[in-house]
Design a protein around this nucleic acid. Structure first.
Lengths: 206, 206, 206, 206
DNA sequence: GATGAATGAGGATTCATTCAT
DNA sequence: AATGAATGAATCCTCATTCAT
């Protein structure tokens, strides 16, 4: 499994760096989620980690850099989870269900990541796009193709695939944001079923 | 009618107070939307208004108070718009369409209000509920009843009304947030139609 | 009793001014005692009096002026009380007793005045002498003479009268300050007796 | 003995902390005495010390905290001086004389401390007791016992010891305050003798 | 490499005073 | 005369970042 060639010299150092970065990132995520960007004090982060403030700056040159690294890590974890959820499925409806469940369960487990998304937009308003959507764009064509296939197969109605994708994506995004903004406590799998039901069948009786 | 005895001295001008507050609020909304809460400088606000900083504090005792007044005004305007949109409609489908159009057109015209909602959550993370949802709660029962009526009439399928309401609300919330986070430029009425289409008919062919 | 000649014209105006000043001064004394000089807000003073802030400034050109007027009024009241207390007494011991009782009872009734004395020094450190001592100086010679008479008569021991006066004065000053600084609640007449006892007889057995 | 493992990085220098705090405290005492609490600018303090403002806040988290640290240091120095003055004396009269001389000579040398006491009360009026009296309370029982012994021995008259203690304390407190309020310049040892004379023998001829 | 001491730019808030009404 | 709207000077405190040890 660990197929990287182990070269002689100081291989452990690299690992150390990686491990340290991850530790810092994990704590930083918690800190930002707790205090917001501005109020999150790098000194507090260092204290919680039991290291010096300078050490944090060794691994992340600025607070902003640290923040975006945390956002990135969070979103990458989300993407991995959602991708994995439908790996062995080709049925469009099943895949959609799996993806929605994975998406909502991820944010249920990692509520801090939602906070990071909000904070990112609140603090870095001048960015063209939030990180989340940069990642999303990468999977755009793949999603579109899957939707078009499903329509071709007659599993979904014929609709503009991009717009369908938007509505589904927006709906899920809205669910997790509302959960946080309204302090809503609904079991995530119930939410998933509610969303799936409406997205698949609509409100009208057939 | 105006039988109040004129007390000596300069009379307090209630209208002036109202006008001033509105002027300040309008500019504050722009400022917060532009810079975020922390970065928004009350001095800059005063400069833009051509008044002294102390004058701002005359009308709003703290920056936080000012911010929440701006949020409140924004949400009240939204509520008014949506309420007005379906005033003379009793048909459930028509009402839903009207409401969704009104909702999206409001945020299309007042994008600053979306920013305020995001900023509120990012900065005041400890509040039980964001202002938006406090307002929403007031209309909860009314909405539920309308949905139940529509189901009774057979216009909508029989479903748990609360959950339906949540999915619709989340979906719309997600739309406006995504518009901002992803810097998405789609005509709001197209978005409205896309959302309405899926919510009413679902993805599956009938 | 009201022996001032009432002249035709607008005599009431003067009275009004005097009355207004006194009302303002009384409330100002309370306010300063409650908040200190810096923290005492002229707006609050006006509000408590039910008048406009500008009106306060009509009667007292600056806050500082207002403060010193309050101090002055307080000290003048003290002086009057103490003077009156020994008006019909010529016996040195009796006069001393009367004066001490009057002094302590005054500050017992008017604790705000003590606060003013403290605040005066704390805020206006550059004054050569606190107002209290300016007033005291006026009575210096009279006091000295009284003490010298008492010594001549053999009622008091022969001592440098100035120094005796200082020790007595300091002692009383210390009593009222300590009452305030230590939040001490002792009936003022007991305190008077304690002070009188020691000042007259000393600690040593005769 | 110094067997602690040297952790990596710059070791925390406790001595430096202590030294810095003392330096800051000394200058702060001067500053507060000169300007009062409100008017004392932390920036000026930093400038006088030739350090950054942030450094002051590194050692004292708030201006208030800094002020009380200064008060505390001042009073502790007083207590030490007075305690030391009568260490090898058991004779009550001698001890009283020594204590009074020490007390007055302390404030003669450290007039800034008197200012701090005044400022404390003027600014922090809501405190139950001024710091000075909190310290004094600790020595209360000891003082009472000494007085009772002296009375038992017949060195002092029989009197309520608590009240005697109060009168002596108030008298001294009054002396130092009057010195400052009235800008009085009398050699402190003369003052001591005057106070001692009256406290011991009273005004009346034996 | 790690640490933590030092820094100072940046921004909210208070309140005496002025002056138009 | 009386009022209260407007002003802005004055100051505390936070915290990212640098760099000597």
């Amino acid at each position: 499994m660990n197929s990287k060639k182990r070269r002689p010299g100081r291989p452990r150092d690299e690992e150390l760096v990686t491990r340290r970065k991850e530790e810092i990132l994990a704590e930083a995520t918690r800190l930002f989620a707790e205090f917001g960007y501005r109020q999150a004090d790098v000194q507090v982060l260092a204290d919680r980690l039991g290291i010096g403030k300078g050490t944090v700056y060794r691994y992340f040159p600025t607070k902003e850099n640290l923040f975006f690294a945390a956002v990135d890590a969070g979103i990458r974890a989300l993407v991995d989870r959602v991708s994995a959820s439908s790996k062995d499925t080709t049925d469009p409806v099943h895949r959609l269900r799996k993806n929605i469940h994975a998406y909502l369960s991820f944010f249920d487990e990692q509520p801090d990541v939602v906070e990071l998304l909000i904070i990112e937009r609140a603090e870095f308003r001048d960015r063209e796009k939030a990180t989340y959507f940069l990642y999303k764009d990468r999977y755009r064509d793949e999603r579109i193709n899957q939707l078009m296939d499903a329509m071709q197969q007659g599993v979904f109605r014929q609709m503009p695939p991009e717009r369908v994708m938007n509505v589904i994506g927006d709906c899920l995004y809205g669910v997790i944001f509302t959960n946080h903004f309204a302090n809503r406590k609904i079991p995530f799998d119930e939410q998933a079923e509610d969303v799936i039901d409406i997205i698949l069948h609509g409100l009208l009786p057939n």
